[in-house]
Amino acid sequence: MQEKKRNWLSFGGEVLILAAIFTIVQYAITAGLLNQYYQINLASMVINIILAVSLNLINGFTGQLSLGHAGFMAVGAYASVIMTNMLGYPFIAGLLMACLAAALAGFIIGVPTLRLKGDYLAIATLAFGEVIRVVLQNIDAVNGPAGIVGISRLTTWPWLFGAMLLTILVVVNLVNSSYGRAIISVREDEIASELMGINTTSYKVLAFVFGAMFAGLAGALYAHYFYIIKPETFNFLKSFDILVMVVLGGLGSTTGAVIAAMFITVLTAVLQSFPAIRMILYALTLIIVMIYRPQGLMGNRELSRQTFGRIWGGRK
């Protein structure tokens, strides 16, 4: 009884914290306290968080090395822009279409390739990501390599915050559900879980589709914030960037992915002012962090797993 009451108290507390963050940032934006530079980096940060958390579902929790996340981001970005800019539907329709298209792409790619193991899966997903990019480069209806220009800026802080919350909520819930336990068992020992009667392929596909869907969402938010999308932006190096965030944060730790995405975004922004040695510093950071924290910043632990789980509706 006592326990339950405390749960509700902390639940309320954490909702308040989230609401406070949202309101403070919203106020800072409307009152002009946050200049454009910080707003842009805030948007990048949130988009990176969504990408990292969703890839972490595939790479971290399911243990399937995917190197094609930028491809799904591209699918989402293009699908949403076709809906809003070309066909004139409202933004929400664009977002939904982005999720749908990316999830479908995830399903089409996941079903055949997830039978592959380890590095063979990595290469297949990488190849698919590149195929998506090259195909986009050759479709004249979306302007080929020049990309689509003049996308209205519909991505605002409420959308960003909502999408980020939704992503984390769904991923945490999924991981803490019975599906999640099955997914994690696949990572820990695929053969053993198969023997336990778990249909490993279908769980892998499930995680893959969810991961792809949120990458698509991130792509849609990206497209409607940065004015232009072109295929080259979504090449395999972009996939590597996302992977870096996931591993830096700690495979299988959602909070880790969030922290690492924030860290990488801030690092990238700070290094803008050191053009000559920017990438050298970035590379050294990766190497040094990995040498001293090979399990990532968070390992596979969560920050207050229980409280987070409860906030975002998971079981204990």
């Binding site: 790479n59 090395l65 590597f240 992977l243 870096v244 591993v247 830096l248 495979l251 000559a276 040695i277 920017r278 990438m279 050298i280 970035y282 590379a283 050294l284 950071t285 990766l286 190497i287 990995m290 040498i291 090979p294 399990q295 990532g296």
Partner: peptide, 28 residues
């Protein structure tokens, strides 16, 4: 070497870091 007993993916990230380092040190 420091990562030999860690996960393979950690070493993969170090390799990506090393790749960027070699590219941009050469550019520098």
């Amino acid at each position: 070497r420091p990562l030999r007993n860690s996960t393979r993916i950690a070493a993969l990230i170090t390799a990506i870091g090393m790749s960027l380092f070699l590219e941009y040190a050469t550019i520098f």
